[in-house]
């Protein structure tokens, strides 16, 4: 008999015994399970160990019923609640699950979904019974990632994990225009990617209100607000839609944004505009292939950042004030560069 059993192995032994048992397990049988059967360890220590393991299994989502009809407590697993029901999956659905797994989990940078998604997919593929996998496994894939900007992945991972666990997080945050940073404690509701960066939307505990935080403004590490919490700490309000907290305008919105903006792109790059914006904004395509992009509103800085990718292929048509501003800014840019460029 081995004298030392690791925690994971011991908990697996306990779970195996619970699943195999045909009647509730009382202590006289539990004490035979490896990990609790070491006679050199005081019985009270072994009972404590068993209680810790039971809590750990329950924290993993298992429902264990304590029977009180017996002289001593006995334990039984609720199979109906603990086991996945039989699932009838079509070939297409099996292939889809495999693709989703490969899309997010093939490499190590899967981010916050990694462990829980991996386990969920394994369970689904196991729950589908024999032939849980498609007959022919594809060798190449569409690869998806949640990471958007360099430097945001650590925060994304920490907040994403808290979002899945429904745990509050704390971090130092430098608000726009403010000096320095201050501690914020937030119940994460969603992570939203807009204009190339990630935003956290959630309930700010100290302000007792919903707030939006740009991840790039978070300083240092994101940590659990209550490291000892082992249960969900909040619920996301029913019907909550994180996208309502954001303008859908790609190039910004607000009182000071230019309205009714029109930019023409020549035939060489017009299709890029259609690839990116057709159906989101109005696009007018001329016979020669030139495309006019119509934006309800836009800020010049956001626009120029995008337009810089198409040197000489675009022209601001409307409004005239924006056209003049863009021309002035281009001239000023050239002047700034002129002193050194030539």
């Amino acid at each position: 008999m081995r004298t030392s059993v690791g925690t994971t192995e011991r908990q697996l032994n306990l779970l195996s015994a619970l699943l195999k048992a045909r009647e509730p397990l009382a202590w006289d049988r539990i004490v035979q399970i490896e990990g609790y059967n070491d006679p050199a360890t005081p019985i009270r220590s072994r009972q404590k160990r068993f209680e810790r393991d039971l809590k750990a299994l329950e924290a993993s989502g298992l429902k264990i019923v304590r029977q009180k009809d017996f002289k001593h407590a006995a334990y039984e697993i609720d199979r109906g609640a603990c086991l996945l029901p039989a699932l009838g999956l079509s070939d297409e659905q099996r292939l889809l699950m495999y693709r989703v797994g490969m899309a997010y989990l093939e490499d190590d940078d899967a981010g916050p979904l990694k462990t829980h998604l991996s386990s969920a997919l394994m369970k689904l593929q196991a729950g589908a019974g024999s032939d849980g996998l498609p007959a022919r496994l594809p060798r190449t894939f569409v690869r998806r990632t949640l990471n958007r900007r360099r430097g945001e992945s650590a925060q994304l991972e920490a907040i994403g994990a808290a979002l899945l666990e429904r745990r509050r997080v704390s971090f130092q945050y430098a608000g726009r225009g403010g000096k320095g940073s201050e501690k914020r404690t937030v119940a994460p509701y969603a992570l939203v990617s807009r204009r190339g960066g990630w935003y956290l939307v959630g309930h700010d505990v100290d302000r007792d209100a919903e707030r939006t935080f740009r991840l790039s403004r978070i300083r240092g590490k994101v940590t659990p607000a209550n490291p000892r919490a082992n249960q969900p700490e909040y619920e996301v309000p029913a019907g909550y839609d994180p996208e309502r907290s954001f303008s859908a305008e790609v190039f910004g919105s607000g009182e000071n944004a230019f309205k009714d903006v029109r930019i023409r792109f020549d035939a060489e790059v017009g299709f890029v505009i259609e690839n990116e914006f057709a159906g989101i904004y109005e696009t007018r395509t001329r016979r020669d292939g030139a495309v006019t992009l119509c934006l309800p509103q836009a800020y010049p800085g956001e626009l120029l950042g995008y337009l810089g990718e198409f040197p000489g292929h675009w022209e601001v048509l409307h409004p005239p004030e924006l056209r003049k501003l863009i021309v002035d800014r281009l001239k000023a840019s050239l002047k700034t560069l002129g002193g050194r460029a030539r």
């Binding site: 086991l83 829980h116 998604l117 386990s119 666990e165």
Partner: peptide, 21 residues
Amino acid sequence: ARPLNFTPQETLALKYALEHF
């Protein structure tokens, strides 16, 4: 042979991944 039921975290991860995909 029968897998354990989904945990809430696994359910959310699956839901989020399918939505994102």
